[in-house]
Design a protein around this nucleic acid. Structure first.
Lengths: 193, 193
DNA sequence: GAATTTTCGACCAAAAAATTCGAATATTTT
DNA sequence: AAAATATTCGAATTTTTTGGTCGAAAATTC
């Protein structure tokens, strides 16, 4: 009924849900299989290994995030709102993604490198987006930004402070408050006008 | 610096956090130990087994919930608000607790029985609380309840519908909506006045 | 400084998990 | 409808993980 490629996608989505809660290590092939209502060995017809599934999932999610962020930006006009929305969606997504990293940290340096690569690519794209948003705002005379490339770098670096490492106590962070504070500084600065 | 009993409590709290995310099965002694920054074998000085820790955790959490609920009730005056708040806190707590049950269901009938016992005790207590809340409201002439024991039974049974079994898709349940709907019925009934 | 309490690393057996394999079943092609 | 191909599956195998033990070291108390 559905072809191989579609089925791979189905596996990716299902496995992704489990990975996102339990992390790589704690997710078993049995669980993935039974969530898909199929025999464990059948999965090996579509993927070589658990790792291959995981990599496909990370790739897939990265694309989803990319699309979601693009849509978000397009959905509003004002330069301020564009940045504000972008930054909020980004934070929520990263919070969710942090579960994937969980339980990888012991040994599996391999995955770590794989994720790092995807991440690096994403960072480059994000920088371009931020630059565009800033440039756009400057053109509309809303932002006072002369070198959008330079300022984009500052914004991106700031946002990295919101990516929660595992050993932080999430509850004590109040990420939303922090993000709002950051946006205040970003838009208004701290100098008296 | 701190005595044995206090350390047991520390273990219970730490283990509880991990259990509540990963469930009994997926939580390892190594994880508990390293979260406590101590050797795995040291834990066995305080507890006989992983199961014993788990039981202590469940017991501890049950007490926390009991206290939280009591405080909640006391924090407001109006009989309607008392019930409304009680019922909301209860729902939130049960949602959280459902993670504990996770990954137990395969074999470990033992735990299941243990939890059932605690649960049964809690149910009895809850019934008494509900009866009191209803009686209190009737005394204040806010509720039209003649037999508070009987009505308490109805309320408790209704609330059981909110305890999410594992095989339900949480996202499709909209528990808060359901709870609000239930409260509407509880307070206003469905008959034309 | 002896006795007691607490921690720890190395070790083990059992359980769990990933992966393989060959046979069975379904689907497509000829 | 037979041959070829694609897909599923259960059982078997290998690898890894994990709960728990033990005796020896620290640390603490007496």
């Amino acid at each position: 009924m559905i072809n191989k490629e579609e089925f791979r996608k189905k596996i990716i989505i299902t496995a992704g849900q489990i990975f996102s809660h339990y992390g790589f290590k704690k997710t078993t092939m049995d669980e993935i299989a039974s969530a898909l209502k199929m025999g464990k060995s059948s999965i090996y017809y579509y993927f070589e290994s658990k790792e291959e599934i995981f990599e496909a999932v990370v790739l897939y999610e990265a694309n989803l995030l990319r699309n979601e962020l693009t849509t978000t930006i397009k959905s509003v006009e004002s330069p301020v709102e564009k940045i504000r929305n972008y930054v909020f969606v980004r934070m929520k997504s990263f919070e969710k993604l942090s579960n994937y990293y969980n339980a990888i940290f012991d040994k599996n340096l391999d995955h770590f490198e794989f994720i790092e690569n995807i991440r690096a690519k994403y960072d480059r794209e994000e920088l371009a987006i931020l630059r565009l948003l800033l440039y756009h705002g400057a053109r509309k005379k809303v932002f006072n930004v002369t070198n959008s490339e330079y300022t984009a770098l500052a914004v991106q670096t700031t946002l990295k402070g919101l990516e929660v490492p595992l050993f932080w106590k999430k509850k004590e962070l109040h990420l939303e408050d922090r993000l709002n504070a950051i946006l205040d500084v970003l838009f208004n600065g701290i100098l008296k006008k």
